[in-house]
Design a protein around this nucleic acid. Sequence first.
DNA 1: GGCCAGGACACCA
DNA 2: TGGTGTCATGGC
Length: 229
Amino acid sequence: MAAFKHSKPDPSRKSLLRIYRILYGAYGPCKWWPGDGPFEVIIGAILTQNTAWKNVEKAIANLKKKNLLDPEKLHKKTQAKLAEIIRPAGYFKQKAKRIRAFLDYFRDEYGYSIEKMKDRPMDKLRDELLDLHGIGPETADSILLYALEKPIFVVDAYTLRIFRRLGYLNAKDNYDSAQRLFMKCLPTEVPLFNEYHACIVNLGNDVCSPKPRCKDCSLYGKIYCNPKA
DNA sequence: GGCCAGGACACCA
DNA sequence: TGGTGTCATGGC
């Protein structure tokens, strides 16, 4: 990491892959997304919006307990009932509305079939998801990558924060420009995109959380204390 | 008791 | 177009 401190980073395939190897060495394999099957991943992607994953797990556990991790069964629940079930995830009224918006679309366009959804070209699928209420770029891309195994790089707040600090992005960079950088520089591979984003989130949880600083390096997180890194 | 978390949207200037 | 407020629970 220190190597990037005194020279302008070159956003090349080689350097982004080097960062990936460092992260993978510290955190990988992350085996994301945590969840049983693509439908659970989709629901998790909506529930985790601006929410700690531990709270999402509680909401998913509630859904599992009621055997509702099935699109048709879940769709039969009213929005108010669904909101009560997912309450531990926070923003439960909003998220219930968003899940129902997805379920309407999933039924109308694909007859609740993940396989039919997978057959759709990635770009068109992304546009469809972004047209849904409550599905923004990160949620759409998480669904594409982790549920449907489409090769798209997921950017999140940690990605912007960390790669701005490293000098690969500047303050004006946003979701789209950051995504273009990664997708231009990295080979288009689902497993690579999967692990890279997962490692960034794990690093973000280490580095960006208000935990006590390391006594040795005065920074946060195990990545900085890893001598091999 | 305050801050933050694996965002997205509505509203306003 | 960019900035700001709102949504809400639970862990630390």
